[in-house]
Simulated assay, not measured.
Amino acid sequence: MCSSHTAASPSVVQASVLHGAKDLRLETRELASPAADEVQVAVRATGLCGSDLHYYGHYCNGDILVREPLSLGHESSAEVVAVGKDVSSLRVGDRVALEVGQPCGSCARCTEGRYNICPEMRFRSSAKSFPHAQGTLQERLNHPAAWCHKLPDSMPWGVSALLEPLGVAIQAARRASLSDKKTQQVLVLGAGAVGLLVAGMCKVAGVPHVVIADVDANRVHFATQKRFADAAYVVPMGPRPASTDEALATAKQTADTITSLPGVAGQVDVVFECTGVPSCVQTAIYATRPGGKVMLIGMGTPVQTLPISAAALREVDICGVFRYANTYAEGIKILSTPSESGPDFASLITHEYKGLAAVEDAFAMASRKEDDEGKLVIKVLVTN
């Protein structure tokens, strides 16, 4: 029978390591025994996300440059294989979801519960801190037990890996105050994985009417077919605006069209902007009712021209959403009790690649909109 305190001997593990743009190498690393407050886990599933793709394709994410070889991946579920001597909350064999952000725990933001915006945050697979916090595309790793969330045995590894991006959607729903039940209709701009998860959380929170918009017709069709949204709009791809005035006029026209759709009762209570594209942020402001909210989730163009008076004169709140804090318990409850009438969260996992040797193929697929058979690409997993 397994002991609750089983320390692993120092060992060698395989890791997928990025050395430059599209330069992935399968390497071996030494792995020490877990520290007293850590557990050692075998990573079972890792989802690839947009930031991973940026690092893979450009060896940077915006203005954050990679300064040393980096393992990517942070959306992960794992199995405990060893525990540190001071750990009592977990045992060998437990299934866990990894919360990979490690805040300082003592600053003002941490003590008020907003540890996601801790200035000293170290986040696995991000190059913001140095030395970098290595990501989860490794066979095994040591992780603080406090940031490992125990999973029901019935929850599949792949679905469990959705808990990390779902946390972003839960954080957005909380900051939008959806739980007060006053929100009757929302608009989600962007039907990628995060946009779909946000739309799904809106339905879970009880929002009666969720509209989703994207330039990709297949994605918005998927959103309504899989019960993430009640209505959808395909944003037409027009010529690039020649001036700021033209861009703002186009954004306003898009907002007017969406808020005039059948079943949409004018401007919406909340817009969740999940693209970061300037035209979408502009549209979000125009589509929000007086006194409503725009939630900025997409990490896109860092400096933008916005119709700020259209927000200020109607008291539209513009709120940022960055990662998540204290969301895993709620996420586990949502994903472990799927509803036949609610969003089909498991359907977001569209492609799976087995083993670290297949990581490069997984990134190639994650960068596509459809596979060779015409199947939509949403969430790509690497499993071990």
Score class of each variant (00 low, 15 high):
residue 193 A to N: 03
residue 335 L to G: 10
residue 291 G to Y: 06
residue 57 G to S: 14
residue 257 T to V: 12
residue 46 T to N: 14
residue 154 S to I: 01
residue 17 V to D: 03
residue 159 V to G: 00
residue 199 A to L: 04
residue 152 P to V: 00
residue 127 A to T: 14
residue 106 S to M: 11
residue 365 M to D: 04
residue 157 W to M: 02
residue 247 A to N: 08
residue 329 A to R: 04
residue 222 F to G: 10
residue 282 Q to A: 07
residue 154 S to Q: 12
residue 367 S to M: 15
residue 286 Y to Q: 05
residue 259 T to G: 00
residue 203 K to L: 08
residue 42 A to P: 03
residue 276 G to Y: 12
residue 341 S to F: 06
residue 101 G to L: 11
residue 135 G to N: 14
residue 196 L to V: 01
residue 160 S to K: 04
residue 346 A to E: 15
residue 269 D to H: 01
residue 56 Y to A: 06
residue 343 P to S: 07
residue 121 M to A: 01
residue 69 P to R: 15
residue 221 H to F: 06
residue 278 P to Q: 09
residue 36 A to R: 15
residue 219 R to W: 00
residue 235 V to K: 05
residue 268 V to N: 01
residue 129 S to P: 03
residue 182 K to W: 03
residue 259 T to I: 02
residue 283 T to Y: 06
residue 12 V to H: 07
residue 378 I to C: 11
residue 105 G to S: 08
residue 88 S to C: 02
residue 366 A to G: 07
residue 140 R to W: 03
residue 172 A to K: 01
residue 35 A to T: 12
residue 147 W to D: 07
residue 335 L to E: 11
residue 213 A to Q: 10
residue 270 V to N: 09
residue 363 F to S: 02
residue 290 P to W: 00
residue 315 E to C: 08
residue 378 I to E: 08
residue 147 W to H: 10
residue 267 Q to Y: 04
residue 131 P to C: 10
residue 323 R to N: 07
residue 123 F to W: 04
residue 323 R to E: 00
residue 40 Q to R: 15
residue 217 A to S: 13
residue 376 L to G: 08
residue 152 P to R: 01
residue 102 Q to H: 10
residue 72 L to T: 11
residue 75 E to L: 07
residue 174 R to V: 12
residue 334 I to P: 03
residue 243 S to N: 11
residue 364 A to Q: 13
residue 267 Q to V: 02
residue 146 A to R: 13
residue 158 G to C: 02
residue 46 T to G: 01
residue 153 D to I: 06
residue 159 V to T: 15
residue 356 L to K: 12
residue 307 P to T: 05
residue 315 E to Q: 14
residue 119 P to C: 05
residue 275 T to I: 14
residue 133 A to I: 05
residue 216 D to M: 12
residue 315 E to K: 06
residue 369 K to A: 13
residue 320 G to M: 09
residue 121 M to K: 03
residue 143 H to Y: 08
residue 283 T to S: 08
residue 150 K to S: 05
residue 221 H to R: 15
residue 268 V to E: 06
residue 35 A to N: 07
residue 104 C to W: 10
residue 381 L to E: 09
residue 25 R to H: 10
residue 249 A to K: 13
residue 361 D to Q: 15
residue 131 P to G: 09
residue 356 L to G: 11
residue 39 V to D: 09
residue 97 A to S: 06
residue 171 Q to F: 08
residue 109 R to S: 09
residue 277 V to M: 12
residue 147 W to Q: 11
residue 83 V to M: 02
residue 182 K to R: 13
residue 254 T to L: 15
residue 251 A to H: 00
residue 381 L to Q: 09
residue 164 E to Y: 02
residue 45 A to C: 15
residue 93 G to K: 11
residue 350 T to E: 07
residue 157 W to T: 12
residue 339 S to N: 10
residue 296 L to C: 12
residue 212 I to D: 00
residue 226 K to A: 04
residue 80 V to P: 00
residue 271 V to S: 00
residue 188 V to G: 10
residue 135 G to H: 08
residue 39 V to R: 04
residue 315 E to R: 05
residue 228 F to C: 05
residue 282 Q to M: 08
residue 280 C to W: 00
residue 67 R to P: 00
residue 219 R to E: 04
residue 92 V to E: 06
residue 144 P to F: 01
residue 16 S to A: 15
residue 241 P to C: 01
residue 84 G to E: 06
residue 23 D to E: 14
residue 382 V to W: 02
residue 105 G to P: 09
residue 131 P to W: 07
residue 370 E to K: 11
